[in-house]
């Protein structure tokens, strides 16, 4: 059995740029060392907020579906999309509800607030403690490697295209040094009026 956070593997990273944010994930789903699927994306979109989930695969799916339900209910009540900051508090309180029997996930949120136009990213531990960051957030089995690549490649005020390249290189090079992550990647670059999703081919080993 071992650690539920590292049974299936996976990595997510989010970065802030100049009036833009990027969020990326790998595509592997494994059982310990055996790779079961190389098409298991870990980023889910909820209107203006993008949610990345790493950890136990079953909880990744459960949480993504739970938030789909919650965000749809929010949209019906409020007659508007959820803002990233609001989403962060929703995720936090949902996780803390399970304080003594947590979902084994490490969520990451990225998005641009449509009202203020401000980029927003944040991360969480599995019981909902929010980690607000001005630069980048990492999570998953390659988090050590991602800390290294992000800390040395990222710089403030990157334009969308440069932010994409930085995010993609940070992710790709990090997951190549983690046996439990990789097998391709998705990277979203989010600006106020455009979202670009790119599918990256990575090493298949």
């Amino acid at each position: 059995m071992s650690n539920p956070f590292s049974m299936n593997g996976g990595a997510v990273v989010a970065m802030v740029g100049k009036d833009c944010v990027a969020i990326g994930c790998d595509l592997r789903l494994g059982m310990q060392a055996l790779t079961v699927s190389n098409n298991f994306p870990k980023i889910f979109s909820y209107g203006d907020a993008y949610l990345g989930l790493t950890g136990l695969a079953t909880d990744v799916t459960t949480m993504s579906e739970l938030f789909r339900y919650k965000v749809n209910m929010y949209r019906l009540r409020e007659e508007r999309d959820i803002e990233p900051e609001t989403m962060a508090n929703l995720v936090s309180s949902t996780l803390y509800e399970r304080r003594f029997g947590p979902y084994f996930v490490s969520p990451v949120i990225a998005g641009i607030n449509q009202r203020t136009g401000k980029p927003f990213i944040c991360g969480f531990d599995s019981i909902g403690c929010i980690d607000f960051a001005k630069d980048f957030i990492v999570s998953g089995t390659a988090s050590d490697q991602l800390f290294g690549t992000c800390e040395s490649l990222w710089e403030p005020d990157l334009e969308p295209e440069d932010l994409f390249e930085t995010c993609a290189q940070a992710l790709l090079n990090a997951v190549d040094r983690d046996a439990l992550s990789g097998w391709g990647a998705h990277v979203y670059v989010i600006t106020k009026d455009k979202i670009i999703k790119r599918l990256l081919k990575g090493r298949q080993d």
Binding site: L29, M31, S37, N39, F40, L56, T58, T62
Partner: peptide, 14 residues
């Protein structure tokens, strides 16, 4: 493909 933990994957072969 589903395991006992309810991890689910859509696959070409499993």
């Amino acid at each position: 493909w589903l395991d006992y933990l309810a991890a689910q994957a859509s696959l070409p072969y499993a």
